[in-house]
Structure formats: C-alpha cells, structure tokens
Simulated scan of single mutants.
Amino acid sequence: MVSARRPVVGLLAAAVLLVLVIGASLVVGARDVPFGTVLDALFRPDPAVTDQLVVLDLRIPRTIVGLFAGLALGLAGALMQGVTRNPLADPGLLGVNAGASLFVVAGIAVFGVTSALGYVWFAFIGAAAAASVVYVIGSLGRGGATPVKLTLAGTALTAALTSLITIVLLSDPATFDRYRFWSAGSLSARGLDTALQLAPFILVGAILAATAGRMLNALALGDDLARGLGQNVVAARIVCFVAVVLLCGSATALAGPIVFVGLAVPHLARWFAGPDYRWTLALSALLGPALLLLADVIGRVIARPGEIEAGLVVAFLGAPVLILLVRNTKAVGL
C-alpha cells in the first residue's frame, strides 16, 4: 500500500534530480565548463569566449535532445506497460524500433541519406508504419486488440523486420557503416533544428498521455470490469496507441533506438506512485529524461577524451535498478 505522500515526494525528488542532471549536462564533458561560464552563456552570451560556444552550440542542443527523447520514452514505456498489462513492455514491443531501423536502412541504402536530419523522417515514418501494422494484426479476430495479441504481433513483426535489416546490412557494408552510428542511440550530432521539428509530435503525444491516466487505471482492472465502469476499451487503446506512436517514433527518430529507458523508468515510477497511472505517467515524464541525460553525462566522463553513447550507458545504469525493483513484486504489479 502506497501512502498518499509518497507520490508527491517521488515527484519532487524526480524534479530535483532532473534539474541537477541538466546542470551536469551543461557543465560536464570532455571539456569541463565552469558553472559561472554556463550562466554567462545563457544570460550574457559572448561569441568570443570558447567555453560559451561549447555550451551554446553543443551542450544546450544535446541537453534539449535528451530532455525530449527521455520524456517521450518514459511516457511511452508507461503507456505500453499499462495498455498491454505487460511489465516487460517497452517501445520495442510494438515493432517501433525495428520499423524505424528498417526505414533508416532503406533511406541510407536507396536514397543515400547521410545526415541525422535526414534520418529523422525515415525513422518516424517507419516507427508509425510498424506500430500501425501491429495494431491492425492485433485487432483481427474475436476480442479485438487484446494485450496478448498486441504483444505477439509486435514480437513477430520485430523478428521479421530485424531479419530484413540484417540481410541489407550484411550485403551492403557502406550502409552498415553509416547505420551503426545512428543505431547505437546517441544524443550527439543531433542539432537543435532536428529536436524542434519533432517537438510538436512529442507535445501532442505527451498531451494524449496525460489524458490516458484514468483510462489505464480502468484497463488495469480488466476489459470486462473496465466496460462495466463505463470505459470505452477500444477508444482507450486507440488513444494510448496514437500517443505511443507519436512518442516512440519521435524519440527513436531523434536519438536512435534506445530501448531500456521505456522499460526501467515506469517500474521506478510505480515504486513511488503505486497502481495509479496518473502519478506513474507524471513521474515517468521526469525520470525518463533524468535517466537518459545521466547516462549521457557518464558516457562523456568515463571514456575521455572520447565518449560512450548514451544508449549503451543507459543499459548499465538501468539494469541494476530494474533488478532491485522486480525483486519487490508489488512494485511491478500491473
């Protein structure tokens, strides 16, 4: 049983953590920048100061990308675990990552796309297309789009698309060389213009997610009981599905297929929030970007003067947290 104060304490702690990580993201890196210089860059910019240029041209865009991608992945993971009633669901479950990856590979191999901004739209369209196919397949037959059918359809499509991606990459080394940098999951080399282009999709997805809390609370009771309480189960799943497509597609297009944030963050959020998805979604929206930015900062520090991509670091950060959480069955119960 979660006390009434615990979600509030968790929300405040998550907000403080996010602020601290944002500060670290602006200060820490291969070239550490004093906090005073960061403040000067924000409020009294001087293009003649090299450290300020590092903050304005590199650190701020990178931090904004991490905020957007982490927010989207955290919310998407909570939505997917709620709508499928599967505690192991993450943005890859509906074939989102596989669809985005396949379209990026096609963009590189067929159209010669080489820039991060060029990858964005291929990844977004691929993610949306794959998730749509999964939903259509999962809706066939009696009972409509049940959690089990969605999970099975997503797993099957992911396996098929992954095979196609492997075939293309093995037969085209040049495409593999370009694709591997995007597929590692990174916040670097993603400009502010890319983030701003995807911001409207993330905003709409976040708004839909904010309206889905009550729906997910009803769905958690089972379809029959949810209908008995007056919840339109089909409409609830469609709202969640559209939100997941917008959020996952945008995050994957922006930062690459980062898979662990959407899995671990909702479990940590539920440890504070309990079974109420309104609190879970709010906490996930803060913990997602905090975890992703923290992983990015650590990746810059441990391999100086180079860096390790955030998508690789986040798995090492999230795995022990998830193991500790799943030992408490109440924390992950859906």
Rank of each mutant, 00 (worst) to 15 (best):
P7T: 08
P7Y: 06
G10P: 05
A15M: 13
V21H: 01
I22H: 01
G23A: 09
G23W: 00
A24R: 01
A24N: 01
S25F: 02
L26F: 07
L26G: 01
L26H: 02
V27F: 04
G29D: 04
G29Q: 00
A30C: 05
R31C: 08
D32S: 15
P34T: 12
F35Y: 14
F35W: 15
G36H: 11
T37P: 02
T37R: 13
V38S: 00
A41H: 02
A41V: 09
A41P: 03
L42G: 10
L42Y: 11
R44D: 15
D46R: 11
D46H: 12
P47W: 11
A48N: 12
V49L: 10
V49R: 09
V49F: 02
V49Q: 10
T50N: 13
V54I: 14
V54L: 14
V54G: 01
L56S: 11
D57F: 06
I64V: 14
I64D: 01
V65F: 05
G66F: 04
L67E: 02
F68V: 14
G70R: 03
L71G: 07
L71N: 00
G74H: 00
G74A: 07
G74T: 08
L75P: 02
A78Q: 02
L79P: 03
M80L: 15
Q81H: 10
G82T: 04
T84W: 04
R85F: 04
N86F: 10
P87L: 12
P87R: 07
L88E: 11
A89G: 09
D90I: 01
L93E: 00
G95M: 03
A98W: 03
S101M: 08
S101W: 04
L102I: 10
F103I: 08
V104R: 01
V105G: 09
V105H: 08
V105W: 07
A106L: 15
A106V: 15
I108P: 00
V110G: 12
F111A: 14
F111Q: 13
G112K: 06
T114A: 12
T114K: 12
A116M: 11
A116I: 08
A116E: 07
G118E: 07
V120I: 14
F122R: 03
F122N: 01
I125A: 15
I125P: 00
I125K: 01
G126C: 11
A129K: 09
A129W: 08
A129S: 15
A130E: 09
A131L: 10
A131T: 11
S132Y: 07
V133L: 15
V134R: 08
V134H: 09
V134L: 12
V136D: 04
G141W: 11
R142V: 13
G143C: 15
G143I: 15
P147S: 09
P147C: 10
